[in-house]
C-alpha cells in the first residue's frame, strides 16, 4: 500500500517541523518522488494492538479488465523471451560470453523505470517515525534514497527498539508470476558505486531457502559510506557476508550460495536521528581472481 500524502502530512504535523537537509543533487522533476512500499501479501508483521485482518480472501482482489489485458500481454511477452533465449545461450547470452565475463552490471539506475524494481520501507509501517523515499538524482540518473531516521520506539508496550529505513529489490519474476533467481556463481565480489553522507549501512542479500521457516534468513555485511561529493567504489567479497535472521547474527554460519539469489537490500539503523541520504549509481558483480577466501568466519561445532 502506498503511503498517502495525507498520512505524511499528519505525520509531519505530529512530529513538528521536520527539517530536511538539501539533497546533493535535487531532482528537477517535481513529481519524481516515488513512494513504494512492499505489497500486501509480503507483509507478515502485525503491529501490536492492531486488530487482525478479517476480510475474506476474495475481498482483497480487485477485478480490472484493462489491468488484465496488460497482464496477459506482459506474461506472454515474457514467455516468448524465455522460449527464444534458449537458442542463444543461458539468459540470452552467448556461451562464450557467459563463460568468460568477469564483470556484470545487475542494476544500473538510468531513467525512471529503473526504480520500479525497488521497494522502500521504514519502521513507519510498524509504528515508528522514520520515513524513507526513493527518487532519481540529477539528470535522471542514479538512485537517491533519502529520508529521516528516528529511533523513538512506538509506545505499544512491546517494541523495544526502533528506527530503520531500508530499500530492497523485488524478486525477479518469470512469466505468469513464476519464481526466478539470479545466478551469480561466476563471481565472488559485489561492486557498488555509491555516494553517502558518512552513515554506516547494511547490505542484505537474500537467497532462496528450502524451508519456509528460514524465510527471514539474510546475509548481511556493512557498507561504510565516506561522505562528501565524490563517488565511492565499494567492493565486498561474498565470503564476508554473515548469516543473520531477524537482526540477530546466527551461531551456525555457512557461506552464501550464489546460484539462487532473490533480492539485495540496504538497511540503515545506526540510531543517529536525523536526515540521511544515499545515492547509488550501479550495482555490479566482479570476479576478483586475487580473492581466494571461501568464508571469513569459523565453522566450529556449535555449543561444544
Amino acid at each position: 500500500m502506498a503511503v498517502s500524502r495525507t498520512t505524511l502530512k499528519s505525520l509531519y504535523g505530529v512530529c513538528g517541523v521536520v527539517y530536511r537537509q538539501p539533497l546533493l543533487f535535487p531532482s528537477s522533476l517535481k513529481c519524481a518522488s516515488i513512494q513504494i512500499t512492499r505489497s500486501k501479501f509480503e507483509r507478515d508483521y502485525q503491529r501490536p494492538g492492531q486488530p487482525p485482518d478479517t476480510r475474506w480472501p476474495w475481498q482483497m482482489i480487485n477485478f480490472d479488465f484493462s489491468k488484465g489485458v496488460e497482464s496477459v500481454r506482459k506474461h506472454f511477452g515474457l514467455l516468448k523471451d524465455e522460449f527464444f533465449q534458449r537458442w542463444i545461450g543461458p539468459e540470452g547470452k552467448p556461451i562464450i560470453e557467459h563463460m568468460l565475463e568477469q564483470t556484470r552490471v545487475v542494476w544500473e539506475f538510468r531513467g525512471p523505470e529503473s526504480l520500479n524494481e525497488w521497494i522502500v520501507s521504514s519502521d513507519q509501517e510498524i509504528g515508528g517515525r522514520s520515513v524513507a523515499y526513493v527518487s532519481l538524482g540529477k539528470n535522471n540518473t542514479t538512485c537517491l534514497l533519502y529520508g529521516t531516521l528516528s529511533s523513538t520506539p512506538p509506545r505499544d508496550g512491546e517494541t523495544r527498539y526502533s528506527g530503520y529505513c531500508s530499500m530492497r529489490s523485488k524478486p525477479p519474476k518469470a512469466s505468469f508470476d513464476r519464481k526466478k533467481h539470479y545466478d551469480w556463481s561466476s563471481f565472488n565480489t559485489l561492486h557498488l558505486r555509491i555516494r553517502g553522507d558518512g552513515r554506516p549501512w547494511m547490505i542484505n542479500v537474500s537467497a532462496e531457502t528450502y524451508f519456509s521457516h528460514q524465510r527471514d534468513d539474510i546475509y548481511s555485511y556493512f557498507l561504510y559510506t565516506r561522505g562528501g561529493p565524490y563517488w565511492q567504489d565499494v567492493k565486498i567479497p561474498f565470503s564476508k557476508f554473515f548469516l543473520s535472521s531477524r537482526g540477530r547474527i546466527q551461531d551456525s554460519q555457512h557461506p552464501l550460495w550464489l546460484d539462487k539469489i532473490n533480492t539485495i537490500g540496504f538497511t540503515l539503523g545506526d540510531k543517529a536521528d536525523g536526515p540521511f541520504q544515499l545515492e547509488i549509481d550501479f550495482i555490479g558483480l566482479n570476479n576478483d581472481c586475487a580473492h581466494t577466501e571461501e568464508f571469513a568466519y569459523e565453522l566450529y561445532k556449535k555449543n561444544p
Partner: peptide, 15 residues
Amino acid sequence: DMGDDHSFNVDEVEE
C-alpha cells in the same frame, strides 16, 4: 580477451 576485461559497462554520470 573478454576474460581480461574487468571494467564495468556503465555510462559515466555527468556532473
